[in-house]
Structures are given as C-alpha cells and as structure tokens.
C-alpha cells in the first residue's frame, strides 16, 4: 500500500515463466509483459497471462498451468519458485517483488518434484512419507471413547506451531539433502506396478524436514505417544533422519515458521536413544 507512489508509474512489468507442456517434454522459458495494477499477487499475474493468451513476442499460447486452492497461504498448493526462492504464489505480492527485482519476475516450478505441467508439480512423495511415519493418531473405533488425556499448557504451546504445517514442500525444495525423485512409467506398465516402483524409489530418498517434524508432533501427543517407537523406527530407515546435513535451510524458508531444526534435533535425540535401545535391549 505504502509504495503506490513509486509503482503506479509502471505500465507493465516483465514475467519470465519456465514452462513444460507435459512430464515428458522439454522445459522452455517464456516471457510475458503484464499490465501493472496495484496489489497484485502471482496468482493474479497468472490469471492475466491466461486471459491475454499471448506471450510478449505476440505468439499465441496456451495458459500457464498452476495449482492453487485457499489463496491465503494455508493449503500449500500454489508453492513454486519465485525469483529463485521457494514460496507460495498467493502470498507473493507483486509490489514487494518489484521492489526487490524491478527488471523482471521469474517463475519456475519446484525443482525437487516431478513437473506435471508448467508450474504444477506432483508432491505425492510428501504424502507417501507422512503415511510411512503414521503422521496421525490412530483411532480404531467409531464408538465414543471419552475425552482424551489432558495436555499441559507447555505441550500445547510446543505442539501448535508444528500442527500448522501445510505440506507445501518449501522446506524440501530448499534442502540440499533432498533430491528429486522422478520415476517414469515403462511401456505397458500397469498402474499398480508403476506405483509400486514409485513407492520403492521414494522409500530410498530422504524423508525430509516436514515429516520429521510431524513425527515429533505426534510422538509428543499424549495419545499419539502410543505409537512413538514405530514412528521413530520409521525415520531411522533408509532415507531417514540420518540424511539431514544440518544446513538449516528448511527452517529459514518455512512460510509457517515451524521450528524444524528443533524438531530435527529432538527427533535426533529420540533416534539416538532408540538406536541404543535396539543395540542393547533386544
């Protein structure tokens, strides 16, 4: 708001988008000149590009594909790489971005996940890992079990920030230890066979900061605690917490400011104890 005076003078600004027509095709850059309006975000820029239907060179183009849902930074669906940094498109305000880099705004899909099309990526691996560690409190009945155990004020205060995770994947995109895994379907492969192969590949890769943090969240929940060993064991498998190299990018980029490195250290402590247990009290 405060910068209207400096930015209203602009008529248009440049946006460069890394596009990809299908998972198999090559990526290519495309430039767009977008008409400036106050209080835009990346989503409204993408809408403008779609309605214009041509690139800056005047070429007719299909609209740039992107994902979004909540439009208020709680669902994580619109996560992409904006000017080289991973963040949500809906909360990336154009006025701010133009202050940082007036010449152009650069959009690319997240680099650690397979691209479906343009800015849409497949983040299935995140959910695969959340399932692997059972990031929930299991309830095996529909009958009323009464109120759960009380949580202390301190427990609540520690749990709440961790519960804000929206599985956006920013922490994974910025993590130098989290590498992209892309499994391509073989000719004539069935859905089941392909998914099985994909799961096996995901199991070998790093589990990532967000999942480790969810393990800490549910292991400290008074009911969730009952499965604590299982969850800790899950993050000690191949690709587990041991892969973390303490670069601490995850905590720096998390839009929800989740104390990920505290979670990683706490989970590391639990894994140390669990490791000793597994060696000595068989």
């Amino acid at each position: 708001m405060s910068n209207h005076s400096s930015t209203t003078k602009r008529k248009t600004f440049a946006v460069r988008v890394l596009r990809k027509d299908s998972p198999e095709s090559e990526s290519y850059w495309e430039r767009h000149d977008v008409e400036y309006e106050p209080d835009m975000n990346i989503i409204s820029v993408l809408q403008k590009i779609a309605s214009k239907g041509e690139s800056s060179s005047g070429k007719k183009i299909a609209p740039v594909a992107w994902d979004c849902n909540c439009l208020e930074e709680v669902c994580g669906a619109c996560t992409m790489v904006v000017n080289g940094k991973t963040r949500q498109a809906c909360s990336s305000l154009i006025d701010r971005l133009l202050e940082e880099s007036p010449s152009e705004i650069v959009l690319s899909p997240m680099s650690k996940f397979p691209v479906v099309r343009d800015l849409v990526v497949d983040r299935k691996r995140i959910f695969h890992n959340l399932k692997k560690v059972k990031a929930w409190v299991p309830v095996d009945t529909y009958s009323d079990m009464g109120p759960g155990p009380k949580q202390s004020r301190q427990q609540q205060e520690e749990a709440y920030p961790l519960s804000e995770c929206m599985s956006c994947g920013c922490c994974l995109e910025a993590c130098p230890q989290y590498l992209k895994i892309e499994v391509t379907r073989k000719n004539g492969e069935t859905d089941e066979a392909f998914e099985q192969r994909q799961k096996e590949a995901y199991d070998k890769g790093f589990i990532g900061a967000n999942t480790i943090s969810q393990v800490v969240l549910f292991n400290n929940n008074p009911t969730g605690q009952m499965n604590a060993k299982e969850r800790t064991d899950a993050i000690m498998q191949e690709g587990g917490i041991q892969i973390c190299g303490n670069a601490q990018n995850c905590v720096a980029v998390c839009p929800k400011e989740i104390p990920l490195t505290t979670s990683i250290a706490k989970a590391g402590r639990a894994a140390t104890i669990r490791g000793l247990q597994r060696i000595f009290d068989k």
Partner: peptide
C-alpha cells in the same frame, strides 16, 4: 547432496 548456497544464502547453508 546438492549445495545451493547462492540461491539460499543463509549462514548455516554456507556452513553446510
């Protein structure tokens, strides 16, 4: 690993 200190130039990332 895939070091990325220029894209994310935080102190701890440089140390990594």
């Amino acid at each position: 690993g895939l070091p990325n200190p220029t894209a994310y130039s935080y102190g701890s990332n440089w140390r990594y």
